[in-house]
């Protein structure tokens, strides 16, 4: 068991080193997200000028939600893992993993964790720069249970994020080009993951349907727990249960696509 974990620890450390090489790229990307936050600030600021609360929350709470989501995105969002996996399949680089006692999913997940550790740490740089303006608006709730329930939600969200990216990567076994699928799915994930607007602002019946979709648990769920948009512990525990079901279902789908995909895969050359 320890030996098995050791393999992935090394994959994680190598991933950490290679991602540290690209620290500037992550930092620049982080600074560019400040522009997105500026749009959020201007748009929602103008919307709140007409009413003091929208969906039961004030401007500061709404901005806190978007900042939380931004931080989560850099800590758990799948950036380009789908493309990396796709490239490895297309170029035949996965052939080496078929000959080694290594689980490809665990290997890629270790590298994903390393990459997000680097990008997650670097998002605090632009936030620090924006702090003089942003700081006064952030109002995080103080209940300790939010952290206790939020952390497992974040961990499962990371698994869902990565699993969806992994599934798209696996599609390369069937389709040469996956970029279209990825961007198509990104649009759905952006809306139903709550990145465009807090999901609780949607009409109740759509919100209730969204609760049963995996996208809800990709970003909105942990973000809403930490920023105080979901306030009932019982509701959160129920959400954690649904989230766990999605994690298991996506892991099973990953395995299925891997097994079926390998049947179609042709390894050429040495």
């Amino acid at each position: 068991m320890v030996a098995a974990l050791n393999k992935y620890r090394h994959a994680f450390l190598v991933g950490l080193q290679s991602n540290l090489v690209y620290r500037m790229n992550f930092a620049v990307r982080g600074f560019f997200s400040l522009f997105h936050l500026t749009v959020v600030f201007i748009l929602w600021g103008a919307a709140f000028a007409g009413s003091t609360n929208i969906g039961g929350f004030d401007f500061a709470q709404t901005l806190t939600y978007f900042v939380t989501l931004l931080v989560l995105q850099f800590f758990i969002g799948a950036f380009n893992e789908d493309y990396q996996i796709s490239e490895e399949i297309r170029n035949g680089l996965i052939n080496q993993f078929l000959l080694k006692p290594i689980n490809y999913f665990a290997y890629r997940f270790s590298i994903y964790l390393a990459a997000r550790l680097v990008s997650g740490a670097l998002i605090f740089l632009p936030l620090l720069v924006a702090w003089p303006i942003l700081g006064g608006y952030l109002t995080f709730p103080h209940e300790w249970w939010r952290l206790a329930l939020g952390l497992p939600a974040i961990m499962m969200s990371a698994l869902i994020q990565f699993s969806i990216a992994y599934c798209f990567g696996m599609l390369t076994f069937w389709f040469l080009e996956i970029q279209g699928f990825v961007i198509l799915s990104m649009a759905v994930e952006t809306v139903l993951g709550g990145q465009m607007f807090p999901l609780d602002l949607m009409p109740a019946w759509i919100f209730n349907i969204a609760k049963f979709l995996p996208f809800f648990y990709q970003m909105y769920f942990p973000g809403a727990i930490l920023s105080g948009r979901i306030n009932e512990p019982a509701q959160i525990i129920q959400g954690l249960g649904i989230q766990l079901c999605w994690v298991l279902a996506l892991l099973a789908l990953n395995q299925l696509l891997w097994v079926r995909g390998l049947r179609r895969h042709t390894a050429v050359g040495g």
Binding site: L43, W44, A46, A47, F48, G50, S51, I54, G55, E177, G180, F181, I183, L184, A187, V188, T190, V191, M196, F197, L201, M202, P203
Partner: peptide
């Protein structure tokens, strides 16, 4: 490829309109 990319653009346009629609569910003016 053409169908997929047409859908991609269409969906992103819908996303932007959806944002407007949701905000105006809760406010009268921006």
């Amino acid at each position: 490829d053409f169908i997929i990319w047409s859908l991609v653009e269409l969906l992103w346009m819908t996303v932007n309109l959806l944002l407007i629609s949701v905000i105006y569910e809760h406010t009268k003016s921006i």
